[in-house]
Every structure is written in structure tokens, then in C-alpha cells.
């Protein structure tokens, strides 16, 4: 199925609300998709997976602790990856020397996208590298550039830190782009989005809307 980009972003925002995120986070969550799409990453799949997991209370819950200038993401407390990811991205953007270290195996790209999106104003650039030193992605002007988009990120620790080298050129979404989604994915996101709807009733129909003719 092919959706207009803004249609997809709207669906994602509703799905995020349906999954339980507050409005602001839901909108930011949806906005993060554009930089992911710009790199050719499977943004819809990532978003659908994270949201579905979050809604089901699955393994994507993390919390954090701060050790001097390092934000350590840990997995023993129930705060959503999305919430803590976006929050962590803003924390990272809050001052020089800050870095994020943690284990969020399924959502590393998401976190990097959050960093890219949240820090675009300051013109800061960040790299994501695994603990063995391998750089797996970088941010640039609101976009996220993965070294190898088709490679799964290993489910172990990674670090997001300020980047010293020249950044990649930003990939822009073509103005006439659409988003191709599988029927299953549309169904999955629509199911989540439908959690935001209130069942119809006679009182609602008459009093809630006007009533109109």
C-alpha cells in the first residue's frame, strides 16, 4: 500500500498516541521518520516494530542513570524506549561532553534518529559506534546516515557521541515521495491508531458534535 508522506506521519502519530505516548512525544516520534526515510532506512518497519512492542509491553523498555557526563541506558526499569530515547536525545544535545551509552538493541537506529532530529538546530553531529569501536551510523542536519543500512545492529552496547569528522551530505526526502507499506504494517499501525477512537454513542453523536443535520 502506498501512503502520502504526511498521511503516513499522521498515521504514525495516531498510532503512537494509541500505543500510549503523550501527544508531544507521539508527534516527535512521527517526525523522526522523515530523517530515517531520507537515508533509505526501513523507517516504517522500525516505527511499527517499536510502537507495537511498546504497546504490548515487550522488551523495549529501558531506563537510565547518569554517571558524570554519560547517560547510561539500562533495562531494568519500565520506561519506554521512545520516551527515554527522545528525552535522552535532548539530554545529549544539552551540553558539550555528554554522551549516551546503552543497550537498546532493537531501537538503536531509532535513538540515533532521535538524536539527529533533536539536535539539528545546533548543527551538532553525532556518531553511533559499537563498543568494539565500529562506527555504525552518523547524524547530519536532521538526518541519520547509517554506515550500512541493511545490516542489523548487533544487540549489544553502543555509544552515541559528538562526531569529530566531516559529516555526510544530508539525504532529502523528494517532494513527491510516497511511503510504501505492507498491508500487515498498515493494519498494525491502524490497529494502534484506532485505540485513540472513542466508541460511538447516541449522546456523543448528538451532543458531542453539535448536533448538526
Amino acid at each position: 500500500m502506498e501512503l502520502a508522506l504526511s498521511e503516513f506521519v499522521a498515521l504514525l502519530s495516531k498510532a503512537a498516541r494509541g500505543a500510549g505516548l503523550p501527544d508531544g512525544l507521539a508527534r516527535q516520534n512521527a517526525a523522526l521518520v522523515t530523517p530515517l526515510l531520507a537515508t533509505g532506512l526501513p523507517a516504517a518497519e522500525i516505527a511499527a516494530h517499536v510502537l507495537t512492542s511498546f504497546a504490548s509491553g515487550a522488551s523495549v523498555k529501558v531506563d537510565y542513570r547518569i554517571d558524570r557526563e554519560t547517560l547510561l541506558l539500562v533495562t531494568d526499569k519500565p520506561i519506554s524506549t521512545l520516551a527515554s530515547g527522545i528525552g535522552a536525545a535532548y539530554w545529549l544535545a544539552g551540553g558539550e561532553g555528554r554522551r549516551i551509552e546503552g543497550s537498546a538493541p532493537d531501537d538503536a537506529r531509532w535513538l540515533l534518529a532521535a538524536v539527529a532530529y533533536c539536535t539539528r538546530a545546533g548543527g551538532k553531529r553525532y556518531t553511533m559506534r559499537q563498543t568494539d569501536g565500529q562506527v555504525i551510523g552518523a547524524t547530519c542536519d536532521g538526518a541519520v546516515i547509517m554506515t550500512n543500512p541493511v545490516t542489523d545492529i548487533r544487540p549489544d552496547k553502543f555509544v552515541i557521541e559528538p562526531q569529530e569528522v566531516a559529516a555526510h551530505q544530508t539525504s532529502k526526502i523528494p517532494a513527491d515521495s510516497t511511503v510504501k507499506l505492507s498491508t500487515e504494517m498498515v493494519t498494525s499501525l491502524t490497529t494502534l491508531a484506532n485505540f485513540t477512537l472513542v466508541a460511538d454513542s447516541e449522546r456523543s453523536r448528538l451532543k458531542g458534535a453539535g448536533p448538526g443535520n
Binding site: P22, D23, G24, L25, R27, Q28, Y64, L71, A83, S84, I86, G87, A88, Y90, W91, L92, A93, G94, G95, R98
Partner: peptide
């Protein structure tokens, strides 16, 4: 503290901060 720290602790306030 700065805004980044605030949003780390209170991501639910992102909307009103924005």
C-alpha cells in the same frame, strides 16, 4: 539544569516545551 535534562526526566512535557 538545562532543558535537555528536563526533557530527559519529563519527556511527557515535550509538547508544552515546544
Amino acid at each position: 539544569a538545562d532543558v535537555g535534562s528536563l526533557l530527559l526526566h519529563h519527556p511527557e512535557l515535550l509538547d508544552i516545551v515546544e
